[in-house]
C-alpha cells in the first residue's frame, strides 16, 4: 500500500434485506483516502453515499444491512474482519463520523456537555473528571461555540442546528481521529451557516492533519473542500479524479451532466440550467449494463451489456464508461 494512504476501501458490496428481497445499495465501490487530504463522495440522493460511510464504520442498520464483500483497510488493519470489541476502539478514536441531521444526531435527554465528555470517558479512561471538563470546554471553544461554560449545561433542543453540528464536530475531534467522515454535514443548514461549518472543518483539518471523507450531493461544496473526488451513481462508482481534473476534464457523461447543472455567475443570466432527464433505476430492477444508460446522451449498444470496467484516464483519474476504451 502506498505510504500516504490512510484508509482504503476495496470492492465494497453492501446490501439490505427488505420485504421485497435483497437490494445492493453499494456495489463494488473502492477508493483511497490520502493522509491529511479530503476525499469527496458526490452523487444524488440514494446513490449509496451514506451506506458506504456507514459500512466503513460498520454501523449499517442491523439486522437488515449487511456487508457482503470487500475490504476496508485503515493503514494495515482490515476493519471488516476486526472483532467487534476492537471496532469499539476504532470508532470515535481512529475514525470519527458526523451526520447530516444535527437535529436528531444528539441525544435529546442528555446535556451536551455530558455527551461530549462521554467520548473522553470511552477512549481516555485514565482522564480525571476535571481534566475531561477542561478538554470539553477547550474543544467547544475551538469549534466556535461561544460561552462554552454555559452551553455544556444545555440540552440539544436549546441550541440551533448550526450549533449542534459544531457540537458533533467537537465530539468527533475529541478522539483525535486519523479520519473524519462527514456525511452531508451542511445539507440541513442555512447557506451562511454552511459556509462557516465548511471553513471550520477545513481549518481543523489543517491544524490536526486528519484525513476527511466529505460526502455531499453538492459539487459546489466539493470544489471548495476536496482534493480527490469519487462520483457515485446508483450504488456504483462512475468516476474518480483529483478535484482539478474532475472540474476541468470530466470524463463520465453523468459527471458532465452534473457540472452543467451548476448555475454559474459568469454565464448568461436566465440561461436555462441543464437537467439530466430520466430517472435513476430502482435498486430492485437494476439494468445489467451501465446504470446511467437510460439517461445518457451518448448511450451505445454495448452500454446494455455489462457495467463498464474502469478506464484509467491519467494519474489518479479513472472512469467507468464505454466511451473510453480500456488501455487508452
Amino acid at each position: 500500500m502506498e505510504t500516504d494512504v490512510i484508509l482504503s476501501v476495496e470492492g465494497l458490496v453492501a446490501s439490505f434485506d427488505t420485504e421485497a428481497g435483497r437490494i445492493r445499495a453499494v456495489d463494488d465501490v473502492g477508493f483511497r483516502v490520502r493522509k491529511g487530504k479530503t476525499l469527496g463522495i458526490v452523487g444524488e440522493s440514494g446513490c449509496g453515499k451514506s451506506v458506504t460511510a456507514l459500512s466503513i464504520m460498520r454501523l449499517l442498520p442491523k439486522p437488515s444491512g449487511v456487508i457482503e464483500e470487500g475490504a476496508v483497510r485503515l493503514e494495515d488493519m482490515d476493519l471488516l474482519t476486526l472483532a467487534r470489541e476492537e471496532m469499539y476502539h476504532v470508532r470515535g478514536k481512529r475514525i470519527a463520523m458526523i451526520f447530516q441531521e444535527p437535529m436528531t444526531a444528539l441525544n435529546p435527554v442528555h446535556k451536551i456537555g455530558k455527551q461530549m465528555d462521554e467520548v473522553f470517558r470511552i477512549h481516555f479512561p485514565e482522564m480525571a473528571n476535571g481534566q475531561i471538563r477542561e478538554q470539553t470546554l477547550s474543544l467547544f471553544d475551538r469549534v466556535g461555540i461561544a460561552d462554552p461554560g454555559r452551553r455544556i449545561h444545555e440540552y440539544p433542543h436549546q441550541i440551533s442546528g448550526g450549533m449542534r453540528q459544531r457540537v458533533m464536530i467537537a465530539m468527533a475531534l475529541a478522539g483525535k481521529p486519523d479520519v473524519l467522515i462527514a456525511d452531508e454535514p451542511t445539507t440541513a443548514l442555512d447557506v451562511t451557516i454552511q459556509a462557516q461549518i465548511l471553513d471550520l472543518i477545513r481549518n481543523l483539518q489543517d491544524e490536526t492533519g486528519m484525513a476527511v471523507i466529505f460526502i455531499t450531493h453538492d459539487l459546489g461544496v466539493i470544489a471548495q473542500v476536496c482534493d480527490d473526488v469519487v462520483v457515485m451513481y446508483a450504488g456504483k462508482i462512475a468516476e474518480k479524479a483529483g478535484v482539478q481534473d474532475l472540474f476541468h476534464h470530466p470524463a463520465h457523461p453523468y459527471t458532465k451532466g452534473l457540472l452543467l447543472s451548476i448555475p454559474r455567475l459568469d454565464g448568461p443570466r436566465k440561461k436555462k440550467l441543464n437537467v439530466i432527464s430520466g430517472m435513476v433505476p430502482s435498486l430492485y430492477e437494476l439494468p445489467q449494463g451501465c446504470r446511467f444508460e437510460n439517461r445518457c446522451p451518448y448511450a451505445m449498444a454495448v452500454c446494455k451489456s455489462a457495467y463498464p470496467k474502469a478506464t484509467r484516464m491519467n494519474q489518479g483519474h479513472t472512469v467507468c464508461c464505454y466511451l473510453y476504451p480500456r488501455g487508452h
Partner: peptide
C-alpha cells in the same frame, strides 16, 4: 434512531448505548 448511531460512532459498545442512551428516551 440517529442519536444511538451517534453514540455508537463515538465508540460506545452497543450494550452501553442501549442503557445510557436509548433507555431513558
Amino acid at each position: 434512531s440517529d442519536y444511538v448511531r451517534t453514540a455508537m460512532a463515538k465508540g460506545l459498545p452497543f450494550r452501553k448505548a442501549v442503557f445510557r442512551h436509548a433507555l431513558r428516551n
